[in-house]
């Protein structure tokens, strides 16, 4: 009898320890980035590739206002509404008191400076694939942007999703592979893979998710319902998208589809960002999209 209770207690202890271990936020070690110097010019390219402004600028920001990362945009999801925080260099309302390592922890591990988990509405699942150099460069660029004193809006997330500790389990279960499209690709498509699977975080919207919000990597970029509840985000694998490389590059540059309609909604923001990348990078993303496995 006591023996059984002992086993049960031991099993519970083990489960508790496993839970604690699994849900403990991961952090980068300071000396992982010690040798890296941030370059703000390269950081600006990382900034546009990552689309930071699309979420972190004020709602409706246009032109240079998109460089003021005051936060405040709302993102509806099945789990609640998330509000993008202020990531401007203000030391009180923004992230002006961070170090480069804090940005690396945020992007690579989804871990906040205080040790909390971030919700994956912040696409660290993808950003984790960016290089440490990209992140350090991005940090250098972010510090050149204007400070904003707009306070953060708390997320509206119901129980149990409000328990951030559980996100450690989410990360454990749903952190994706280092490369989604694995194996050797020609150099241009490989560069596109780095951009599209990493900073570009295309898969965050264009891939379907399971009931707990984990990306379904077997249907990578095969389209998904729009989390806002209206419309669908299209399948951009060769199984559905028959645009030529030239069509894709034009779309990433001017937003014009092959029918000369223009990108709308969130994709219009994405195009604004992509248009600021060197044309070689837009070509690379187009080459990657041609190399992605076709899903019907």
């Amino acid at each position: 009898m006591f023996k059984v209770a002992g086993y049960v207690a031991f099993a519970m202890l083990l489960a508790g320890a496993a839970f604690w271990w699994i849900t403990t936020p991961e952090r980068v070690r300071e000396n992982d980035i010690a040798g890296l110097a941030g370059d703000a010019v390269r950081g600006e390219a990382a900034f546009w590739a990552g689309g930071c402004a699309s979420c972190h600028s004020a709602p409706g920001a246009e032109g240079d206002e998109r460089l003021v990362l005051s936060g405040g945009r709302a993102f509806a999801s099945d789990f609640g509404t998330f509000y993008a925080p202020n990531i401007s260099p203000d030391p009180v309302y923004g992230i002006g008191d961070w170090q480069a390592a804090d940005l690396v922890n945020a992007m690579r591990h989804g871990t906040a400076p205080g040790g909390d988990h971030y919700y994956p509405a912040f696409p660290y699942t993808s950003y984790a694939r960016a290089s440490l150099q990209d992140m350090v460069d991005l940090w250098a660029f972010l510090q050149t942007l204007p400070a904003s004193t707009v306070p953060d809006t708390p997320h509206e997330v119901g129980f149990p999703f409000s328990l951030r500790r559980l996100l450690g389990g989410w990360k454990f279960l749903f952190t994706g592979p280092d490369q989604v499209v694995a194996g050797d690709l020609p150099p241009e498509a490989a560069r596109g893979r780095t951009l599209a699977e990493g900073l570009g975080h295309c898969g965050e919207c264009h891939s379907p998710r399971n009931a707990l919000g984990g990306i379904d990597y077997t249907r990578w970029l095969a389209g998904a319902p729009n989390p806002s509840g209206k419309g669908r985000i299209p399948n951009i694998t060769p199984g559905k998208l028959d645009w030529s490389v030239a069509d894709l590059v034009e779309y990433f540059t001017s937003g014009f589809t092959p029918d000369y309609d223009s990108a709308g909604g969130e994709m219009a923001e994405v195009v604004q960002n992509l248009a600021k990348l060197p044309i070689e990078d837009r070509r690379a993303i187009a080459a990657y999209l041609k190399a992605v496995p076709a899903v019907e």
């Binding site: 409706g60 246009e62 729009n226 806002s228 209206k230 419309g231 669908r232 034009e250 540059t253 001017s254 937003g255 014009f256 223009s262 990108a263 709308g264 909604g265 219009a268 923001e269 195009v271 604004q272 248009a275």
Partner: peptide, 21 residues
């Protein structure tokens, strides 16, 4: 000139056109 033109079309579509459902 394509970029600015596309940007001008997109600016209105982004703000004032409902998603294609």
């Amino acid at each position: 000139a394509m970029g600015p033109l596309g940007g001008a079309c997109g600016a209105c579509h982004k703000a004032y056109r409902a998603p294609d459902s």
